Simulated scan of single mutants.
Amino acid sequence: MINNNSVTFIMAGRRQRRRRWLLVTGLLTALACILCCFMLLLGNTIYPVNEVLRALSGEQINGVSFAINTIRLPRMLTGLIAGFAFGIAGNTFQTMLRNPLASPDVIGITAGSSAAAVFCILILHTSGAIVSIASVIAGLITVLLIYIFSRGCTFSIGRLILIGIGIQAMLNALISYLLLVGAQQDIPAALRWLSGSLNGSQMDELPPLAITVLLFAPIVILLGKHLSMLELGEQSAISLGVNTDMTRITLIVSAVCMIALATATTGPIAFVAFLSGPIAKRLVGAGFSNALPAGLVGINLVLGADLIGQFAFDVRYPVGIITGILGAPYLIFLLIRMNRKGDL
């Protein structure tokens, strides 16, 4: 009887957690859809819903078709796909390394991709596919360097984070140097890109990012249970039957490819990868993978911040400035809390 009661209690708790996961995921999806609608409807001119739908269906309407299909739709799709990539990649690193500071934009991975992209823009005067390929390669090299330098007698997550922060500072210095030696006419475009912006998004820039997310995001989501087991520690994951080396390599390559392509497309939108995982974890709770909710949180952060930057102030600000304002206080709070707990 006691065993039956225990099983019943465990199953009831699991069903409750599943309902919570489904509810949170559904609400985040609904909010993302609402924000997508606002992205299409709002602008210098607010168009009626029926005209927006007619323009999206291919009907040519003076003024409306150009504004919707050439400006607003690419901007919305770029924010949606890039936000999902930032969110799910950031959550992957934070969960795998068991530390909320282990986000790609904190430990230097985003800075590596950014440095490669700025080099291509300012020095090589290239764009498009070359920038994307360079960003992915630089992101993978940055991960490899961080791992090599952080290896001592034993692997330490704290050492990895500190070395990652140091490499990030070095790469930011390199970016500053490139801005100093770059051609003057290219610097404004590079600075706008570095701030993280959806301005000037174009449909022909989306296929590489969209294909990358469609390819690697399902891999991360399917490995969600293994990722949760890695959070328990190396020995616990191995005892549960996880091939830790293969799982870790697969997750790292998938996350780096997504975040590098997103960075190459929109610039390094600050703190989206850093905030998405903790927010999703707080909303979903324990028991189920929060990879998909983290991606949805990333979408909502990017689209919501972009709407705030466009319409909440007299001056329009890039999305990266708004997310930076949101993320910086949380980073300070997290550092203070971890220092008090002795985790730093």
Results as ranks from 00 to 15, higher is better:
73 L>P: 00
50 N>V: 14
318 P>Y: 04
6 S>C: 06
181 V>D: 07
65 S>A: 08
42 L>R: 09
130 I>V: 11
228 S>G: 15
177 Y>L: 15
15 R>F: 10
220 V>D: 01
276 S>P: 01
93 F>A: 02
130 I>E: 07
63 G>H: 03
99 N>R: 06
224 G>A: 02
200 G>W: 06
204 D>R: 14
169 A>V: 13
91 N>I: 07
321 I>L: 11
75 R>N: 04
321 I>A: 04
217 A>F: 02
23 L>I: 14
110 T>E: 07
66 F>N: 11
166 G>T: 05
327 G>S: 02
119 F>V: 02
10 I>Y: 15
20 R>W: 12
124 L>Y: 11
254 S>Y: 06
228 S>M: 14
341 K>W: 11
343 D>Q: 13
325 I>Y: 01
229 M>E: 09
255 A>S: 09
336 I>W: 13
242 V>Q: 02
306 D>Q: 08
313 F>S: 06
210 A>V: 05
322 I>W: 00
3 N>A: 13
231 E>L: 10
300 N>F: 03
123 I>D: 03
309 G>N: 06
104 P>F: 03
238 I>L: 13
238 I>F: 10
228 S>I: 08
43 G>A: 09
247 T>N: 08
109 I>F: 06
211 I>C: 10
239 S>T: 11
117 A>N: 05
208 P>N: 10
37 C>F: 15
212 T>A: 14
280 A>H: 06
58 G>Y: 05
307 L>W: 00
262 A>T: 05
192 R>D: 09
13 G>N: 14
296 L>A: 02
4 N>C: 08
4 N>L: 14
